[in-house]
């Protein structure tokens, strides 16, 4: 790296992000939202501060805001609030000094385990118990609330008994479906793809890769209450206490594979693909 002739290459490799590179957060945010809805439907609305569906506008303005205030601020393009008028304070412009920091450092309250979040919390708790990772709950405000409401970690099962039974008789549940049934995220995935308008979004209209047996739907899992939040596709090197779900993805093979990539020529240097920063 000391060779001075490398300097232009290193500089280009580490150049500031281009607009294109900051486009496309939509599917990931949708997944995050679905996951949070699963764990605690009540907490979801409170915590949902921004919704940036990959529209270039959002990314661009988000980038401007981030550049100005030094935090990752995202333009709110809400598809959930009926009128779209209830913009959370601090997201309607880059003038606010530290919106993200405020939201990130506010002491988390977590969902009320006696309220509507109870079902989600219980489901998540049971899922964790099923996978033998109760030890991981210390850091979770949501679970702390649940334990408090139940009167102790050993009483959670009893506390949850009433909300979990109906779910169990409902057949193998799709967690996302349950969340949407609350009306929180109705039609959201389609909206994502439509707003996106890119083939990227069309390939994953619901934000779920088709070839990946993740825990989003777990029809073959013995316990129907297994929540997808229990990390279905845990990378092998992750220091984790969570075993993978029964539907283990067969894609965790190491580096060398038997596949054969197609030599694509110089795809990255074709003029049509060049997007300058």
């Amino acid at each position: 790296m000391r060779d001075p002739s490398l300097a232009p290459v290193i500089r280009a490799l580490t150049a500031e992000p281009s607009e294109r590179e900051l486009d496309g957060i939509g599917p990931a945010l949708a997944e995050l939202r679905a996951r949070v809805a699963q764990a605690s439907p009540g907490a979801r609305r409170r915590r949902m501060l921004a919704t940036a569906f990959g529209a270039k506008l959002g990314a661009t303005l988000g980038g401007v805001a981030a550049g100005l205030v030094g935090v990752g601020t995202v333009l709110l393009v809400s598809t959930h609030l009926p009128s779209g008028a209830q913009l959370p304070a601090g997201l309607d412009g880059p003038a606010q000094p530290h919106p993200a920091v405020v939201s990130a450092t506010a002491p988390p309250r977590g969902p009320d385990a006696n309220g509507p979040a109870k079902h989600g919390l219980c489901t998540a708790w049971t899922a964790r118990s099923t996978h033998g990772s109760q030890g991981k709950v210390d850091g979770s405000v949501a679970f702390a609330n649940l334990v408090e409401a139940a009167g102790g970690a050993d009483k959670v099962a009893a506390f949850c008994a009433d909300v979990l039974k109906p779910r169990a008789s409902g057949g193998p549940g799709n967690g996302n479906g349950a969340g949407k049934a609350n009306g929180n995220a109705k039609g959201k995935p389609n909206g994502t793809a439509a707003d996106k308008g890119k083939d990227k979004a069309e390939k994953q209209p619901d934000g779920t890769p088709t070839d990946e047996p993740t825990g989003t739907t777990t029809p073959t899992t013995p316990a129907p209450t297994t929540a997808p939040t229990t990390a279905p596709t845990t990378p092998a090197t992750t220091p984790t206490t969570t075993p993978t779900t029964p539907a283990t993805t067969p894609t965790t093979t190491p580096a060398t594979t038997t596949g054969t990539p197609v030599p694509r020529g110089s795809a990255t240097v074709e003029p049509g693909q060049t997007v300058g920063p």
């Binding site: 590179e21 900051l22 945010l29 764990a39 919704t51 940036a52 990752g72 939201s103 988390p108 949501a142």
Partner: peptide, 18 residues
Amino acid sequence: ARNGDEVAFARLWRDLNP
């Protein structure tokens, strides 16, 4: 981000996606 804060997640995303 782990708690579902989308602004926090967006910050992680914007930092690493490029």
